[in-house]
Lab assay of single mutants.
Amino acid sequence: DTINITLPDGKTLTLTVTPEFTVKELAEEIARRLGLSPEDIKDTHNGKTLDPSLTLAEYGITPGSTITLEIK
């Protein structure tokens, strides 16, 4: 299953994830792909900052969802 990550420059990154991924694991994968530190990444969905300890499923993030990435 894939989700879309909207980057600060407007580009989109597509990642393969499972509903059990935590937001922290997602940030780590994004950081790895972009050459950043996971601590520099802030993920938001529907205007809410995502708690790193919760899973994508707990936020109702499903395949095809879009998450907005902010760099701290």
Score class of each variant (00 low, 15 high):
Thr68His: 14
Glu29Trp: 14
Leu26Pro: 00
Asn46Pro: 07
Thr44Pro: 14
Leu69His: 01
Ser37Tyr: 12
Lys42Gln: 12
Tyr59Pro: 00
Lys72Cys: 14
Lys48Glu: 11
Thr44Gly: 11
Arg33Tyr: 13
Leu36Trp: 11
Pro38Gly: 06
Thr2Lys: 09
Ala31Ile: 05
Ile5Arg: 03
Arg33Gln: 09
Thr49His: 12
Gly64Pro: 02
Pro19Cys: 05
Leu26Gln: 00
Thr18Asn: 08
Leu15Ser: 00
Thr6Trp: 11
Leu50Trp: 14
Thr14Phe: 07
Ile67Glu: 00
Leu69Trp: 05
Ile61Lys: 01
Leu13Met: 11
Gly35Val: 02
Thr18Ala: 06
Phe21Cys: 11
Lys24Glu: 03
Glu58Asp: 14
Thr16Trp: 12
Phe21Lys: 06
Tyr59Lys: 02
Ser37Glu: 10
Val17Ile: 14
Ala27Thr: 13
Asp43Leu: 15
Gly47His: 07
Leu15Asn: 00
Pro38Trp: 14
Val23Ser: 01
Leu26Glu: 00
Glu39Lys: 13
Pro63Asn: 09
Gly47Lys: 04
Pro63Phe: 05
Val23Glu: 00
Asp43Asn: 15
Lys48Thr: 12
Asp1His: 11
Ser37Ala: 11
Glu70Cys: 14
Asn46Tyr: 10
Thr22Tyr: 01
Ser53Ile: 04
Leu56Glu: 00
Ile5Asn: 04
Ile41Gln: 02
Glu70Ile: 13
Gly35Lys: 06
Glu70Leu: 11
Ala57Tyr: 14
Asp40Ala: 12
Ile41Pro: 02
Lys11Leu: 12
Ser53His: 10
Thr49Val: 13
Gly10Phe: 04
Lys72Tyr: 13
Thr44Phe: 14
Asn46Gln: 08
Leu54Val: 09
Thr22Lys: 04
Ser65Ala: 10
Ile5Leu: 06
Gly64Thr: 02
Ile5Pro: 02
Glu58Asn: 04
Thr12Leu: 09
Leu7Ser: 04
Gly60Gln: 03
Glu39Gly: 15
Glu25Ala: 09
Leu50Tyr: 11
His45Lys: 10
Asp51Ser: 05
Pro19Trp: 05
Glu58Thr: 03
Leu50Met: 10
Leu50Glu: 02
Thr14Ser: 09
Leu13Pro: 00
Gly47Ser: 05
Ile67Gly: 00
Thr2Val: 10
Leu15Phe: 07
Arg32Val: 05
Leu69Ala: 05
Arg32Met: 08
Phe21Gln: 11
Ser37Gln: 12
Thr68Arg: 14
Lys24His: 07
Thr14Lys: 10
Thr2Pro: 05
Thr18Trp: 13
Thr62Trp: 09
Asn4Gln: 08
Lys48Pro: 06
Lys72Ala: 13
Thr62Asn: 07
Leu69Phe: 05
Ser37Val: 11
Thr55Tyr: 03
Ile3Thr: 01
Asp1Lys: 06
Glu58Val: 03
Ile67Thr: 02
Pro63Glu: 06
Leu7Trp: 06
His45Leu: 14
Lys48Tyr: 07
Arg32Cys: 09
Thr62Tyr: 13
Asp51Lys: 05
Asp40His: 12
Ala57Gly: 08
Leu56Thr: 01
Thr62Gly: 12
Thr55Leu: 04
Lys11Gln: 11
Ala31Phe: 12
Leu34Lys: 00
Ser65His: 06
Ile71Gly: 05
Leu26Ala: 03
Ile41Asp: 01
Ala27Tyr: 15
Thr44Leu: 15
Ala57Val: 11
Leu13Arg: 01
Asp1Tyr: 15
Asp1Leu: 15
Thr44Trp: 14
Thr62His: 11
Ile67His: 03
Leu50Ser: 03
Glu58Lys: 03
Leu54Thr: 08
Thr44Met: 12
Leu34Ile: 06
Ser37Gly: 07
Ile41Arg: 02
Leu13Ile: 11
Glu28Trp: 11
Ile41Leu: 13
Tyr59Trp: 09
Thr22His: 01
Val17Tyr: 14
Val23Trp: 15
Leu7Cys: 08
Ala31Arg: 06
Pro38Tyr: 14
Glu25His: 09
Leu7Lys: 02
Ile71Val: 09
Thr62Glu: 10
Ser65Arg: 02
Ser65Trp: 05
Leu7Ile: 05
Pro38Ile: 15
Pro52Ile: 09
Ala31Pro: 00
Leu34Ser: 04
Glu39Ser: 14
Thr44Asn: 09
Asn46Met: 10
Glu39Cys: 15
Thr2Arg: 08
Asp1Asn: 13
Leu69Met: 07
Asn46Asp: 10
Gly35His: 08
Thr18Phe: 08
Ile61Ser: 01
Pro63Val: 06
Gly47Asn: 07
Ile5Val: 13
Ala31Asp: 01
Asp9Gln: 05
Thr55Cys: 03
Glu28Asn: 08
Gly60His: 03
Pro38Thr: 11
Thr14Cys: 08
Pro8Gly: 09
Thr62Ala: 08
Leu26Cys: 03
Asp1Ile: 15
Gly10Glu: 02
Asp51Leu: 04
Glu29Asp: 04
Gly64Ala: 02
Ile3Gln: 01
Ile30Asn: 00
Ala31His: 05
Lys11Arg: 13
Thr16Gln: 12
Lys11Val: 11
Ile71Ser: 06
Lys24Asp: 02
Lys48Asn: 11
Thr62Met: 12
Lys48Met: 14
Ile41His: 03
Thr16Pro: 10
Ile61Val: 07
Asn46Ala: 08
Glu20His: 11
Lys11Pro: 04
Ser65Met: 14
Ser65Val: 10
Leu34Gln: 01
Pro52Gly: 14
Thr55Trp: 02
Ile41Gly: 02
Val23Arg: 01
Lys72Ile: 14
Leu34Val: 04
Gly10Val: 01
Pro38Glu: 06
Asn4Pro: 01
Ser53Gly: 08
Glu39Trp: 06
Ile71Tyr: 11
Thr55Asp: 01
Tyr59His: 09
Ile61Gln: 01
Thr68Val: 14
Asn4Ser: 09
Asp9Met: 05
Pro52Phe: 13
Gly64Asp: 04
Pro38Ser: 08
Arg33Ala: 10
Gly10Met: 03
Lys11Tyr: 13
Thr55Lys: 07
Thr18Tyr: 09
Lys48Gln: 13
Thr68Leu: 12
Thr14Trp: 06
Glu28Phe: 10
Pro8Leu: 10
Glu58Ala: 08
Thr68Ile: 14
Leu7Phe: 13
Thr2Ala: 08
Ile5Lys: 03
Ile61Asp: 00
Ile41Asn: 02
Asn4Arg: 11
Ser53Thr: 11
Lys11Trp: 12
Ser37His: 13
Ile30Arg: 00
Phe21Ser: 11
Thr66Asp: 04
Leu50Cys: 14
Ala57Arg: 14
Pro19Gly: 03
Leu56Val: 02
Glu20Cys: 08
Val17Glu: 00
Thr22Ile: 01
Gly10Ser: 03
Lys24Phe: 09
Lys11Ile: 11
Asp43Tyr: 15
Lys11Cys: 12
Ile3Asp: 01
Glu70Thr: 10
Arg33Trp: 15
Ala57Ser: 08
Asn4Lys: 10
Leu13Ser: 02
Lys42Leu: 15
Leu69Arg: 00
Pro8Tyr: 07
His45Tyr: 14
Glu28Cys: 11
Gly47Gln: 05
Pro63Cys: 06
Leu26Lys: 00
Ile61Pro: 01
Leu50Gly: 03
Thr22Val: 01
Leu7Asn: 01
Glu29Tyr: 12
Thr22Asp: 00
Ser65Ile: 08
Ala27Lys: 14
Glu28His: 08
Thr14Pro: 03
Asp1Ser: 14
Leu13Tyr: 09
Ala27Phe: 15
Leu36Tyr: 08
Glu25Lys: 08
Asn46Lys: 06
Leu36Arg: 10
Lys11Met: 12
Gly60Lys: 02
Ile41Glu: 01
Leu26Arg: 00
Lys42Val: 15
Asp9Lys: 05
Lys42Tyr: 15
Tyr59Asn: 14
Ile5Tyr: 01
Ala57Pro: 02
Ser65Gln: 07
Lys72Arg: 13
Thr12His: 08
Thr49Gly: 07
Leu7His: 02
Pro38Gln: 06
Phe21His: 06
Lys42Cys: 15
Lys42Ile: 15
Glu58Trp: 06
Ile71Glu: 04
Ile67Ala: 01
